[in-house]
Design a protein around this nucleic acid. Structure first.
Length: 938
RNA sequence: GCCGAAGUGGCGGAAUUGGCAGACGCGCACGACUCAAAAUCGUGUUCCUUCGGGAGUGAGGGUUCGAUUCCCUCCUUCGGCACCA
């Protein structure tokens, strides 16, 4: 009895038994029953009408329909209803994504069977869904945990396996210790790599698991040309798939083993001064010399341990060890050391890299830390050139001389910092040469790399020169002894830092015959050359991984595989599908599938040889179920295949798919992969499963935080429906925010929507008496009606639900005013009454049906055609001519709509208000926007 | 760090193409009805003002007769990715 005070109007209305008071709790169930009985929302194949498949993401049966479901579904339903009125044969189905962990967790904590828990929840949610008054065709309801459904989930697995798109491999996989199962990469979130469902940090486990070859479709998944999807989702998917173009280059170890690397920068090959392998790389053992063995083994052990306890995100410091082994750089035959480091991942590329420290930030950090040689091989594109001149390096008179030549500098206690364009380098060196002290040197860095000594000028253009120059420096200043490379020495001077490293595409330098190749051609030229030499080739790499689908849980579709000692992994024959889940299992979380611990379930015989064999005991990721539910809706009870091909040919593809953005890199990639794989197996047709996608935003609690039970900010739709009625909740949800944005809930706002519907109700129940309206009144009324119709039609097409309701609110305000002005009883009046209710029908279907019948119109409003606006009617005959002086609005003049520019100008100049602002001056210029505005420039 | 989106009254938000900023609603104030309250209806509501006006769409600059809208720089918030070679 929380709402005693506010339910008062309803309570009173019961007592008064007054038909004229709006009672949504009476009319809503009444119409829902009638619609159900008459079957007005049955969607059957009808080749005479254009089809429209409107799909909303299916809910998980958690047991409660929350505000997010309403926010996602109610406006989608309104739009589906609008399309139906537009003449489409609309399919708007519903079902349940009914497999999954929460059911099993409930079983563990409350000792209820997952099936019982799930189906009780479904029953409850069906009731809640019905209260929404949506046009779901319940005959097409599909539940993924029904054997008649998962029979086909298993069947799809078998098909994928037969076509080599499903495979089994041992791999380090992400494991959630709380959910006691493996997770797909997409289900691991955040910096601390936690489980998407329960937030527990995941650990790595080495397990034999089933995968789908999503990577085979990486390139095609990047093609969105057949899709009308939000840019945001396309971008998320594009980044997730992570295409990078480059080359595969084959290095060789000194012992002669090929060592393949992937690089996006083949143009930097001459700057590859060392190599780094992932600690798990197969060649590590062979490369490691006995002297380095202990260190290497310790490092490998450390990284393995680290990956289990999670690498600290704060620990960005590079680590690694030298193997003692060397490789040969194939472009210049130079011998370069091979290291191992955990910044190279075994799971990307080949698990080995060529390190180009001068042009890759990570390699640079690594080289600086371990004193490895760094050689710039790409010219800077910004021409940044720097030189620090110590006062000990030059003799008296230097600074006067350099000033005379026009160089500017910053002075500090040690000397002078120069920054100048690369074109002035020679001039700079000339002056330095003249004033260089015998125990000094001066270096130029950035766009040129030159060291000036008393007797010679040395250009730093090779790794050999690095050491040679360093030696000369040490001779002059013993402090330099501590540095292993020139770059390490230069790095100590903060002034230089921004000039030492860059990763831009500039002209190649220090690269033998390729030196001088411009940056925009460098990559392709080197790739062509590598290909010619047989040492490499162009290659594309993707960040996307294959989809790990094994789950060590009970409540999912079993993976239909039998392991035979003789024949290996054998598919369960199609006529034996589905592999049914046993009912009697132990829930205790052990880290093994409960199916594995069942005493008999896994024992079977090999379909090939008939000898004893065991079943796969893992179940499938539930994203597998949701990858094809849009197909099961077409014929949920069909038993000759996953779907009835006649239904498929009529309804597919999905025309509009609505749901949350959180699925961008999970469900929405999986379902596209699934469709394309099925297409290649001859099961589905067309390039894509869902043509148009629109995402709703998220509704937050009133405190602007995510709704959650623990926060106590959950707004329950059931309570709102009981208090205000579904029509009000629907209208308010459409009104209160942009659908694609969402935002914090406002309990005050819904009162506004409630008032509005009550006002409409009262208005239609007590229509004003006919009067003597002016022609103007009627014309204005009709204009407003048709303008609103045009706008609302447009807004339904483009998912702008909030302006649909505000437009209808405006119109209803106008209609009330027109009624007061005596418009009742005219044909314009009647038209307004009807069109308004027709436009309201998709948003608030029950009140619309009731008021439609009050108008004496035939049942059902939801089978009426959407009205067409009259282009003649929307034309204004008076415009407000805005008159500006110097861009500021100074006057507004009513003028006929067809006013000429000259007339508009005259009218503006004649206005008394404007005269005042002109102050007798002659306008310099008059800008006229026809029918809108005059701007007088003084 | 990289990529992306968004910043408009007290609040949610509106503004077809660069052309009247703040539609519609909430809230608030005042008034009507009422013994009273609720509900309902009406009026007002960006800020400042010397009542002439002036300022104003995160901040600063630019293009333009004219910028919430286009361009540049920056700030804040949110989302995604994060040693991806």
């Amino acid at each position: 009895m929380r709402f005693v005070a506010s339910t008062m109007p309803f309570l009173r209305s019961y007592k008064m038994i007054d038909q004229k008071i709006y009672k949504p709790n009476i009319i809503e169930p009444k119409w829902q029953e009638r619609w159900e009985k008459d079957g007005i929302y049955k969607s059957d194949i009808d080749k005479n009408r254009p089809k429209y498949y409107a799909l909303t993401m299916l809910p998980y049966p958690s047991g409660d329909l929350h505000m997010g479901h309403w926010w996602a579904m109610a406006p989608s339903d309104a739009r589906a209803r609008y399309l139906r009125m537009k003449g489409y044969n609309v399919l708007f189905p519903i079902g349940f994504d009914a497999f999954g962990l929460p059911a099993e967790n409930a079983a563990i904590s409350r000792n209820i069977h997952p099936r019982k828990w799930t189906y009780a929840n479904i029953e409850k949610m069906r009731k809640q869904l019905r209260s929404m008054g949506a046009m779901f065709d319940w005959r097409r309801e599909a539940i993924s945990s029904d054997p008649e459904y998962y029979r086909w989930t298993e069947w799809f697995f078998t098909q994928l396996h037969k076509h080599n798109l499903a495979y089994r491999k041992k791999a380090p996989v992400d494991w959630c210790p709380k959910c006691n199962t493996t997770l797909a990469r997409e289900q691991v979130w955040g910096e601390d790599r936690h489980c998407e469902r329960c937030n527990t940090p995941v650990i790595k486990k080495e397990l034999e698991q089933w995968f789908f070859r999503t990577t085979s479709y990486a390139e095609e998944l990047l093609d969105f040309s057949h899709l009308d999807w939000p840019e945001r989702v396309r971008l998320l998917q594009t980044n997730w798939i992570g295409r990078s173009e480059g080359a595969s280059v084959i290095f060789h170890t000194e012992q002669g083993d090929p060592l393949e690397v992937f690089t996006t920068r083949p143009d930097t090959l001459w700057g590859a001064t060392f190599m780094v392998l992932a600690p798990e790389h197969p060649l590590v053992e062979k490369l490691t010399t006995s002297a380095q063995e202990a260190e290497v083994k310790a490092y490998i052990a450390q990284t393995l341990r680290q990956s289990e306890i999670q690498r600290e995100a704060t620990d960005k410091e590079k680590s690694g060890v030298f193997t003692g082994g060397y490789a040969i750089n194939p472009v210049n035959q130079k011998r370069i050391p091979v290291w191992i480091a955990d910044y190279v991942l075994m799971t990307y590329g080949t698990g080995a890299i060529m390190a180009v420290p001068a042009h890759d930030q990570r390699d640079f950090d690594f080289a600086i830390k371990f004193g490895l040689p760094i050689l710039p091989v790409i010219d800077r594109t910004d021409g940044l050139t720097k030189s620090f001149v110590s006062c000990h390096s030059v003799v008296d008179g230097f600074i006067d001389a350099i000033e005379k030549t026009g160089f500017s500098y910053e002075e500090n206690s040690e000397g002078w910092n120069f920054t100048f364009p690369v074109t002035k380098t020679d001039e700079f060196i000339q002056v330095i040469k003249e004033f260089i002290a015998s125990k000094g040197w001066v270096e130029v860095v950035g766009s040129k790399w030159v060291f000036v000594f008393e007797n010679e000028i040395i250009v730093w253009d090779s790794v050999e020169k690095d050491q040679q120059i360093l030696k000369l420096c040490v001779e002059r200043n013993a402090d330099a002894k501590q540095y292993r490379t020139l770059m390490e020495m230069l790095w100590q001077r903060p002034f230089y830092r921004d000039a030492l490293y860059h990763d831009g595409y500039g002209t190649m330098i220090n690269s033998e015959e390729f030196s001088g190749t411009p940056g925009d051609l460098a990559k392709e030229k080197v790739i062509a050359w590598l290909q010619n030499q047989g040492t490499g080739k162009g290659m594309v790499n993707y960040r996307l991984r294959d989809w790990l689908i094994s789950r060590q849980r009970y409540w999912g579709a079993p993976i239909p595989i039998i392991y035979c000692p003789e024949h290996g992994a054998v598919d369960v024959p199609e006529d034996q599908l589905p592999v049914l889940l046993p009912d009697d299992v132990e829930w205790k979380p052990t880290g093994e599938s409960p199916l594995k611990l069942h005493p008999t379930w896994k024992n079977t015989t090999c379909p090939i040889c008939g000898k004893p064999a065991v079943r796969e005991t893992d179940t499938m990721d539930t994203f597998m179920c949701s990858s094809w539910y849009h197909l099961r809706y077409l014929s949920p009870h069909y038993d000759k295949g996953p779907f009835d091909p006649r239904e498929y040919d009529y309804w597919m593809p999905v025309d509009t798919y609505t749901g949350g953005i959180e699925h961008a890199t999970m469900h929405l990639i999986y379902t596209r992969f699934f469709h394309k794989a099925c297409r290649d197996m001859g099961i589905t047709k067309g390039p894509e499963p869902m043509i148009q996608l629109r995402n709703q935003g998220i509704i937050l609690g009133e405190d602007s935080e995510k709704m959650s039970k623990s926060r106590g900010n959950v707004v329950a739709p059931d309570e709102l429906v009981a208090r205000y009625g579904a029509d009000t909740v629907r209208a308010y949800l459409m009104f209160f925010a942009r659908w694609d944005m969402g935002g914090p809930w406002s309990s005050g706002g819904i009162e506004g929507a409630s008032r509005w519907l009550r006002r409409i109700w009262t208005f239609y129940q007590n229509l004003p008496k006919p009067g003597k309206p002016s022609i103007e009144t009627l014309k204005n009324l009709r204009r407003k009606v048709h303008q609103t119709l045009k706008q609302v039609t447009h807004d339904y097409e483009s998912f702008e639900f909030n302006t649909i309701i505000s437009g209808l609110m405006e119109l209803s305000n106008e209609m009330i005013k027109a009624g007061e002005a005596g418009a009742a009883g005219t044909k314009e009046w009647q038209e307004a009454l009807e069109i308004f209710i027709l436009m309201l029908a998709p948003a608030s279907p029950h009140i619309a049906e009731e008021l439609w019948s009050v108008l004496g119109k035939p049942y059902s409003i939801h089978q009426q055609p959407w009205p067409e606006f009259d282009p003649e009617a929307i034309i204004e005959d008076l415009i407000t001519l805005v008159v500006q002086v110097n861009g500021k609005v100074r006057d507004r003049i009513e003028a006929p709509v067809n006013i000429t520019d000259q007339e508009a100008k005259n009218l503006a100049l004649q206005s008394n208000t404007i005269q005042k602002f002109l102050e007798g001056k002659e306008p310099k210029k008059v800008i006229i926007v026809p029918g809108k505005l005059v701007n007088i420039v003084l």
